[in-house]
Design a protein around this nucleic acid. Structure first.
Lengths: 115, 115
DNA sequence: TACGATACCTAATATTATTATGTATAATTT
DNA sequence: AAATTATACATAATAATATTAGGTATCGTA
């Protein structure tokens, strides 16, 4: 059994992380990428995804460009200049938060791999 | 900078984890323990704590016993029989969720420590 | 005696996610 | 050819959860 409840609050940082890695992504692609990375365990619903994307645009972190594939729209999101500047600090915060969870829930011994 | 936003959704599992370890705890003690374990970084607010505790009681996971220290009440919470049975599975779920976050946010290389 | 710490609690508000619904095109299966 | 699934966007009603603010009261210490 896998619980999605703990993943609440992670969607915006996750979007930033994915878009930073991929340079640009569109909404549907994000849902598929998360499914893939999580071996089908995490399903981002559209009701969570699109409002989160729109908020990130409102916050000036993401910018959009539409592309038309045939008659169908694709809205690509990428980091704005401001987003490029602020993303590393945000992701570092998330990193610390997740490692804090590891510590709190006593998931140690986990250590950095020297490899 | 430390972000508490990702910790949303973790309060109920965290309570279960702490009470499982300590056998029994009272509300204020939980806030102090979390502060201590997180080196002052995580502050559980009472508006989140008490409703969560009450819900866990309603769900039959926790039971309470009041103790009077002088004229002041302390409400101790411990796992119910049902809670004792279900806690391991719940914590395993959380474990998987947190390790999923580690994976998604690419916090690898993290490996089990052989020590 | 004033203040900070201990100890419980709720209510209004804000945030975020789930569930349901809506629209439409493209590709695949029957 | 028709039906279904996948792709692709979106919003609205509801539910769940947290923040902020407020309330009450005791205990220990400066």
């Amino acid at each position: 059994m896998f619980s999605q409840e703990i993943l609440k609050g992670t969607i915006k940082p996750l979007i930033i992380k994915l878009i930073k890695d991929e340079r640009r992504m569109y909404g549907y692609q994000i849902t598929q990428k998360v499914k893939e990375l999580s071996t089908q365990k995490i399903v981002i619903t559209e009701g969570a995804l699109y409002p989160a994307l729109h908020k990130l645009v409102d916050e000036g972190i993401l910018i959009t460009e539409s592309e038309w594939i045939g008659n169908r729209e694709r809205k690509y999101y990428s980091l704005s200049e401001s987003g490029i500047k602020t993303a590393p600090a945000k992701l570092e915060e998330i990193r610390e938060s997740i490692l804090m969870l590891v510590q709190l829930f006593d998931l140690k011994p986990l250590v950095y791999d020297a490899k």
